[in-house]
């Protein structure tokens, strides 16, 4: 995205005699590129699914649920990407969080609230470790999180003893109170009007917060500055280290949130959870227009990326396409979406 990065589309600063090709058109084309991609994918799936099971309200809600897991994690990753770093450990964090909750709750007999706190505390700790190694020890975040991700996965295997757990059917000798199960499952399984999935609501809440932070807060403004030029940020005395800590911590905690909600929806955990998230989450952030070199990224972009990927997942599942082809299509569409986006970006000049 070199050369044509005019400004992030939703930034509201500037103006002052905005030229005719200015902001409105900017936003129009930016959203346009992704919107076109999403539209094309919808049309293709609608045409392919006979009888039409794709373009229905019920299926839209399924897509919304698929999307929310990707989006919640991706919104956290967006913060890390914007500040100019990379996090590869979020998928493993997702797995650890889900298993920590189930193990401490079911096997160790902790109350559910303590189990949840434990998961989020572990996430915060991982964020701190990641950020510490990146900012203080000064190891590139790619390497740091590659390592911590593996470490976290190892922890998950240790903690879970590779068992699959379901609180509704605890293993012999363990008991889980009915009330706690109802409360926990209720986090993601409330009956809402129009079959709206509970996780969609959570996602919208997270998206609003991250969106406001990125576009309307001093924190988001400085996050972009730091990601755009860390050296200039240091010389201008912006709190580079502190902000990177926050970004890594939030990223890990949002991965835990998504894990908790998925656990609550699905009802069980197993040790290898979350590993398939790496691709869709990264793809959502990049399709959403965030720059891997830092300084650029929006909540709305990441959400659109997550939506596109969720539609593809859902559509392929509806068409009963084999798993192999799914990967192939996801990869192709991701590249196509980014190419389309670069093309529309060049139109923006």
């Amino acid at each position: 995205m070199t050369g044509s990065t005019a400004s992030t589309p939703q930034r509201t600063t500037g103006g002052g005699g905005s030229p005719w090709y200015g902001r409105a058109r900017d936003v129009g084309i930016r959203v346009g590129g992704l919107a076109i991609a999403i539209l094309i994918v919808i049309i293709i799936f609608t045409a392919l699914s006979k009888p039409n099971t794709f373009l229905t309200w019920l299926n839209a809600m399924v897509v919304l649920r698929y999307m929310s897991t990707i989006a919640i994690v991706a919104l956290g990753l967006t913060l890390v990407i914007v500040v100019g770093e990379i996090d590869l450990s979020f998928g493993f964090m997702y797995g650890l969080a889900a298993n920590l909750i189930s193990v401490s709750w079911i096997m160790w007999g902790w109350p559910i609230w303590a189990a949840i706190i434990l998961a989020f505390a572990a996430a915060a700790l991982l964020g701190v470790v990641n950020a510490f190694l990146v900012t203080i020890v000064r190891i590139p975040s790619f390497i740091v999180t590659l390592g911590t991700g593996q470490l976290v996965f190892g922890l998950t295997l240790l903690v879970s003893a590779t068992a699959t757990l379901n609180p509704a059917y605890p293993p012999p000798g363990r008991e889980v109170s009915r009330g706690e199960v109802d409360f926990f499952f209720g986090l993601a399984n409330q009956a809402l009007p129009l079959n709206i999935p509970m996780q969609g609501i959570w996602m919208v809440g997270v998206a609003i917060v991250v969106g406001l932070v990125l576009s309307r807060s001093l924190f988001g403004f400085r996050l972009k500055a730091i990601g755009g030029n860390p050296e200039a940020a240091r010389l201008a005395r912006l709190p580079v280290v502190k902000y990177k800590f926050v970004a890594f911590i939030v990223c890990a905690m949002l991965a835990s949130l998504a894990a908790m909600l998925d656990f609550a929806f699905i009802g069980s955990t197993q040790p290898n959870l979350g590993q398939s998230l790496l691709f869709p989450v990264f793809a959502a952030v990049i399709i959403g227009g965030a720059s891997l070199s830092g300084g650029r990224g929006t909540a709305i972009g990441t959400m659109s990326g997550a939506l596109l990927l969720a539609i593809i997942q859902d559509g392929l599942a509806l068409l009963s396409v084999g798993a192999y082809l799914q990967q192939f299509v996801q990869g192709s569409v991701t590249i196509a979406a980014v190419v389309l986006d670069r093309f529309t970006a060049s139109l923006r000049r």
Binding site: S7, R216, S217, L218, A225, G228, N229, L235, A236, R237
Partner: peptide, 27 residues
Amino acid sequence: ASLFSNLTVGDNMVARLDDEIAPRGAL
């Protein structure tokens, strides 16, 4: 090392400010 190439002219000018542009953290 003194400018943010991903920001606009205006944003670069106010990049070092805090309360002046964002009382209580809101831009």
